[in-house]
């Protein structure tokens, strides 16, 4: 790893650890290996959003050319959000692509991601299905996002209606996450989800 990248990550790492957001448990960074090329981030779901109460884990890969190129960040915690792939966790955020600037840091990236959770950009989607639901049925989107937060990120809101429908599909031999993804995509319409799964 280029010296400048490692040096910078070391300095940033200290900055994040000392920052007041860490004191408030809003963001966190951990080392995954000794060479500072891979890190694990954590952000708390922002209040007054369906993600409230959840903890979202991020995979951060630092390229050799950092900070001239952005770090590669992906959600490891499954999340229902128009700008984040519900399958791979890939993020559509301008500062992680063409709007990256060398003066940005891990801390600003994590805070930007937190801001993305409170303000989605459905017109620049990463996950077309989620974005469509967000635009056409906001209430259904919030129910789904809150349910995913509960199941995958440890959020507090249990939705027994969603759980029941998933159990019905699991009883038919469908894998649980597959059932949840299908139901989420079809606005929790059990019949249509079943049709899609068995077609």
């Amino acid at each position: 790893m280029a010296n400048i990248a490692a040096q910078r990550i070391k300095r940033e790492f200290k900055e994040v650890i000392k920052s007041e957001e860490v004191a408030k448990c809003a963001i966190k960074v951990e080392l995954v290996n000794d060479s500072y090329t891979e890190l694990k981030g954590e952000i708390a779901g922002p209040p007054d959003t369906p993600y409230e109460g959840g903890t979202f884990v991020l995979e951060i890969k630092v390229p050799e050319t950092y900070p001239f190129n952005p770090p590669k960040v992906r959600f490891m915690t499954k999340i229902w959000h128009p700008n984040i792939s519900s399958v791979t966790g890939a993020i559509c955020l301008d500062i992680l692509k063409d709007q990256w600037a060398a003066a940005m840091t891990l801390r600003t990236v994590l805070l930007s991601l937190q801001a993305l959770l409170s303000a989605a950009e459905p017109d620049d989607p990463q996950d077309a299905v989620v974005a469509k639901q967000y635009r056409e049925n906001l209430e259904m989107f919030q129910i789904t996002a809150r349910h995913w937060t509960n199941v995958y990120a440890g959020g507090p809101h249990v939705n027994s209606d969603c759980d029941d429908k998933i159990r019905r599909l699991v009883d038919m031999g469908i894998e649980e996450h597959q059932a949840r993804a299908a139901l989420s995509s079809y606005n929790w319409d059990l019949e249509r989800a079943t049709e899609q799964l068995f077609s």
């Binding site: 400048i4 040096q7 910078r8 300095r11 940033e12 900055e15 900070p67 001239f68 060398a102 003066a103 840091t105």
Partner: peptide, 8 residues
């Protein structure tokens, strides 16, 4: 005295 790119 800090460079915003290398933070040194």
């Amino acid at each position: 005295f800090e460079c915003p790119i290398c933070l040194a």
